[in-house]
Design a protein around this nucleic acid. Structure first.
Length: 574
RNA sequence: UGGGGCGUAGCUCAACUGGUAGAGCACCUGGUUUUGAUCCAGGAGGUUGUAGGUUCGAGUCCUACCGCCCCAGCCA
């Protein structure tokens, strides 16, 4: 046996560190001696749950820190109390930890810096680089100009620093209602980059903040809070998505004009898009709040909570993120790539079990009534250390409806009258007869067995092409099994301005009741609660769902196995 | 008809300062197999968006054009 640990595996996330244009920059800076160490940050806004797109950012930021011996901060961008909630702050931390990353002592909030940010705003005012604007939002929009036409200066643009200071302090004191005034940077209303047309730095919001309560009635905007927070934390590389490219000049303008303790650099990469799903927070919130799914952890969702509940292992998710790379190209990753990464990981680690989803009774007429044979079944053929378990075999078994055909095509290797198949880890059986109901449906299959084939070995070495899974009718555990498919039928739901809801896949969740599982599956713990994701042989990977209980177990399919027979069958049918 | 980005295989990404275009996924063959899985071997698939230019030589440099994405929140 070769040592598996020495085998290079491109999909395993313990291999060589990935390289991409961001990491090239980081390593270049390190070699040039620009920084003592690398400091990155993952900066979620706590206004929703994390999804697989965030996983890309998390793996990038925490990954770079790990690879360079630096550190990565978890910082909540909590600058808008109108949208943010403590429950999201809690859920996000759980999700990042689950993905496998640790921020140690480095948990921060933009709100930690509110006082400092306020003082820096005053500094800008003192320098004549910011002013309080009394214009309404509509007036501001009109005077901002358009993409092709320059804006015009606000009538309040030339207030004195003293007047601005007084007004800004009054804003802080809560003297004005929401929207009455804003603090704006004084840059250039004719700038071709609209972000430089006197961007808003502070706005009045009278709403309780999850962390600062009612201490503030003004809040910094993203642009004013983000870069300065980076500077305060000594972030060296501030990584964000492409839509912030236009903000970089503003990011740099603020860093240059403020007495900040460090000068972080912003770099942008393309966000993840995944086929057959949506990854915009707005759309995800809509799916949850309008009840199209059962909650943020609905297994059909691409949220980390949903993936976790579905039994997706964090290692598999990380391998996927690794495989898709990092670039500046706005692209759509095929869901097939995620599934392949999950299968690759699960194939190596998942325990094998047997379960029958759509049961058909198989009666072995030659088997002694009442006799039970406890057979050895290997837990994981890919892992010698995984051991084996005992599986009960009896006269009456459940087999998959798909594994029997009365009139089978040529290359059908499973059960069909007169054909011998192997019952996995059990015996070789030959179909002799079928029982039908009044409508002609097969409701029971009869067979004889070869008593010398215990364990599934042909005593004379004869070839038996088909092997099917089964569950003892006497010992089987009744269960509900849920099969998950694409949430949306189209590759890019909502593309071209369409309503993504029109593409919702009604078959995204298929609930099967009356399934039978081998006894070892009783009392399984859901993956989301630290339990295992196991392989049901020939069917895919499954985990227990929290909706179930030991009395009435529910399982959910993480991902199916590759199924070339399905392709062959489909071809034959067409 | 402004500004910022991006175009390499069906998809996602590689290709150090210019030197014969590669990988993973997907697809197709064949082999192994007590999971029609896994594994192994092989195959197909590119005029590197287009057109010029520089060069002995261009995916890499230059010019022009085409296409797609982002920006006119007191969201992030």
């Amino acid at each position: 046996m070769t040592d598996a640990s020495t085998t290079a595996d491109p999909a395993d996330d313990t291999g060589d560190a990935p390289r991409d244009f961001i990491r090239d920059i980081v390593h270049g800076d390190l070699e040039a001696g620009k920084h003592a160490g690398v400091v990155t940050r993952f900066p979620p806004e706590p206004n929703g749950y994390l999804h697989i797109g965030h996983a890309k950012s998390i793996c990038l930021n925490f990954g770079i820190a790990e690879e360079t011996g630096g550190r990565c901060h978890l910082r909540f961008d909590d600058t808008n109390p109108a949208k943010e909630e403590q429950r999201y702050i809690d859920a996000i931390q759980e999700d990042v930890r689950w993905l496998g990353f640790d921020w140690g002592e480095h948990l921060f909030h933009a709100s930690d810096y509110f006082e400092q940010l306020f003082q820096w705003a005053e500094h800008l005012i003192g320098q004549g680089l910011a002013y309080v604007d009394d214009q309404s939002a509509e007036a501001m929009r009109e005077s901002r100009g358009t993409l092709t036409a320059p804006g015009t200066n606000s009538p309040f643009r030339d207030r004195t620093p003293e007047e601005n200071l007084e007004l800004f302090q009054a804003m802080r004191a809560g003297d004005f209602p929401d929207g009455a005034r804003v603090l704006r940077a004084k840059i250039d209303m004719a700038a071709p980059n609209i972000n430089l047309r006197d961007p808003v730095l502070y706005r009045i919001i009278h709403a309780p903040h999850p962390r600062t309560g009612d201490a503030w009635s003004i809040y910094p905007t993203y642009d004013f809070a983000h870069g300065q927070s980076d500077a305060l934390e000594g972030i060296t590389h501030s990584l964000c998505t492409l839509e912030f490219e236009d903000h970089r000049p503003l990011y740099e303008w603020l860093i240059e004009n403020l007495p900040v303790p460090s000068a972080p650099k912003q770099y942008e990469f393309a966000r993840l898009n995944l086929s057959h799903t949506v990854l915009s927070k707005r759309k995800l919130i809509q799916l949850v709040e309008d009840g199209h799914v059962t909650g943020w952890d609905d297994p059909r969702l691409p949220t980390l909570a949903g993936l976790r509940r579905r039994g997706v292992p964090p290692e598999g998710l990380r391998a996927f993120i690794r495989q898709i790379g990092v670039s500046k190209v706005d692209s759509v990753v095929d869901l097939a790539m995620l599934n392949a990464a999950l299968r690759e990981h699960l194939n190596r680690v998942a325990s094998r079990r047997m379960g029958v989803l759509r049961p058909l009774k198989l009666v072995i007429d030659t088997w002694p009534e009442g006799e039970v044979d406890w057979l050895d079944a290997i837990n994981n053929p890919q892992d010698d250390t995984a051991g084996s378990r005992k599986v009960p075999f009896g006269r009456e078994l459940w087999i998959e409806q798909d594994d029997f055909m009365e009139d089978a095509p040529r290359k059908y290797f499973r059960l069909t009258p007169g054909q011998e198949v192997r019952l996995r880890y059990g015996y070789l059986v030959t179909c002799t007869d079928v029982v039908k109901d009044a409508d002609g449906n097969v409701i029971e299959v009869h067979a004889t067995h070869d008593p010398d084939s215990r364990g599934g070995n042909a005593p004379d070495g004869r070839k038996v092409r088909g092997t099917i899974h089964w569950v003892s009718a006497e010992h089987g555990v009744a269960a509900e099994v849920r099969l998950i498919d694409h949430l949306f039928t189209s590759e890019q739901p909502g593309a071209g301005g369409a309503d993504p809801l029109d593409d919702l896949n009604p078959a995204a969740l298929e609930v099967l009741t009356g399934c039978w599982l081998e006894p070892a599956l009783a009392d399984a713990t859901p993956a989301a609660s630290g339990g295992e994701t196991v392989q049901f042989e020939r069917l895919g990977y499954f985990t227990a769902d929290p909706d179930g209980s030991p009395a009435s177990p529910v399982f959910i399919r993480t991902v199916g196995l590759r199924d070339t027979w399905a392709k062959v069958a489909a071809k034959g049918a067409s």
